[in-house]
């Protein structure tokens, strides 16, 4: 298969890679750019572990072709902290023990950040429905919901 050259922006920095036409954005991020924070839990859009944003829109990177990244702005978990300052969601997840094995955590954080950008004061139910596509098998979600709400409150300055 003839490879394609893709120029894109990842976490604000220019990035280039070559990929096969059928390659997913997830595979390109992980294998071409070395950004292994997004995980493949299913490869079919059912678990959310590969969540990233493309042009500000939350997506499963396993359901995006790498070739579609041409000219796009991609944001991944690796770009969530600002230098040595963790994002309030990242801190809240540690403080509230909202992770156990942690493999779903990058995807959940990316998804939760996207929720709070759209809705800074969600109800628990809104958080639960927004995150329904992010499977977590360890926590039963309880502490995740609490952590998101705590970060939301902090970000509102409450």
């Amino acid at each position: 298969m003839k490879k394609l050259h893709v120029s894109t922006t990842v976490n604000g920095d220019p990035a280039e890679f070559v990929c096969t036409p059928d390659e997913s954005l997830l595979d390109a991020l992980r294998n071409r750019l070395g950004l292994t924070g997004a995980k493949e839990g299913c490869g079919t859009g059912d678990c959310g572990a590969c969540s990233v944003t493309v042009n500000g829109r939350l997506v499963c990177s396993c359901l995006v072709l790498a070739a579609e990244a041409e000219g796009a702005e991609i944001a991944t978990i690796e770009g969530m902290a600002e230098q040595d300052r963790l994002h309030p969601l990242q801190r809240a997840f540690i403080d509230h023990a909202a992770l156990q094995c942690g493999v779903c955590t990058p995807g959940i954080l990316v998804a939760a950040k996207s929720l709070l950008a759209k809705n800074p004061e969600p109800t628990d139910e809104e958080v639960r429905y927004w995150l329904a596509g992010n499977l977590c098998r360890c926590t039963g979600y309880d502490k995740i919901i609490r952590a998101v709400q705590s970060a939301a409150a902090e970000m509102r300055g409450a």
């Binding site: 992980r30 950004l35 292994t36 924070g37 997004a38 995980k39 493949e40 991944t76 978990i77 690796e78 969530m80 902290a81 963790l86 990242q90 801190r91 997840f93 540690i94 403080d95 023990a97 992770l99 942690g102 493999v103 955590t105 990058p106 954080l109």
Partner: peptide, 21 residues
């Protein structure tokens, strides 16, 4: 008590290395 876990930062920043990484 409930201190922060030692692997927390690695896991919230995507740095933790899992099997496929």
């Amino acid at each position: 008590t409930r201190p922060n876990r030692p692997d927390g930062v690695d896991k919230v920043t995507g740095r933790a290395m899992y099997g496929a990484d």
